[in-house]
């Protein structure tokens, strides 16, 4: 070391300062990023006003100004205060205490300055704030009682909620079972608010939490017979194994060996 020229102390100081600054920025940035992710994690449970963009887009777009809250005629919207269950500062509603009355002119959406509540929503019937889900173990109708309050109160009665009649033995009256149809249900929550059970047996949940998807690969054979027979050409399928010793395509232990 002795014979080497002494290093440039200014340069060394600068590099150390640079590393310290970078470390400071990295620790602060990571902590900040963690808080943001933690905060956003709660958002799948939120019910947003009509026209709200998809969850991630809404999180990005909402400026937390509360103009929708102020103009809401039934006054059901609230901004989430700090430290609550949902991400901070954004509008939400809880149908059990205050359901959306589906104003035809959608004032909340019109009040939104950023487009987080998208003006592409032209008719309130097309809003998809959430989806009504019935707890059939606690729904009075499913116990065979005459209730059907959700059906009667539904603003889209007969489309969003229909009644299905199940005749029973002669000593009991038929069951009148409410069914929710996702192609019409806006998630306004009037059913949840009206439900007479102690804890609502019909509830609004965000679509992502409850809605499944059949998938492209299923075919309704009884519905689209013609198309399917045309699509599927057994003659086109390779019958023989690609290589000797390998099973033919579509063969497994269930049908191997069958002619």
């Amino acid at each position: 070391m002795a014979e080497r020229a002494p290093g440039n102390p200014q340069r060394r100081d600068f590099l150390v300062k640079l590393a310290q600054g970078a470390a400071f920025a990295a620790t602060g940035g990571l902590l900040w990023e963690y808080i943001l992710r933690n905060e956003a994690r709660a958002s799948p449970f939120a019910l947003r006003p009509p026209g709200a963009l998809a969850e991630a887009d809404f999180n990005a777009a909402c400026i937390k100004c509360g103009q929708c809250v102020n103009v809401c005629p039934p006054d059901i919207l609230r901004l989430q205060p700090a430290g609550g269950k949902l991400p901070i500062g954004m509008p939400f509603y809880e149908p059990r205490s205050g359901a959306c009355i589906m104003c035809p002119d959608i004032p909340c959406m019109k009040a939104c300055p950023t487009g987080a509540l998208s003006p592409e929503l032209k008719r309130i019937e097309d809003a998809r704030m959430g989806l009504a889900v019935i707890d059939i173990e606690n729904c009075l109708s499913y116990q065979g009682l005459r209730c059907e309050i959700c059906h009667r109160e539904c603003p889209l009665k007969g489309r969003a909620i229909t009644l299905e009649t199940h005749p029973r033995q002669t000593s009991k009256h038929a069951m009148f079972i409410p069914l929710v149809h996702s192609n019409a249900c806006t998630g306004c929550g009037i059913c949840e608010k009206a439900c007479p059970t102690e804890i609502a047996a019909i509830r609004i949940l965000p679509h992502a939490l409850v809605q499944g998807k059949i998938g492209e690969h299923y075919r309704y054979g009884w519905r689209d017979t013609g198309e399917i027979t045309q699509d599927f050409k057994p003659s086109a399928a390779p019958a023989a194994p690609a290589k000797p010793g390998e099973a033919a395509p579509g063969m497994d232990y269930l049908n191997a060996g069958e002619p």
């Binding site: 900040w32 808080i35 992710r37």
Partner: peptide
Amino acid sequence: AGVAAFEWVSPIGMLQRGLIYGMG
């Protein structure tokens, strides 16, 4: 993060929003 980073943690937002819409 894909969200307005300061707006989501801002104590200014918490205070002014809190005074108008509920403090939490």
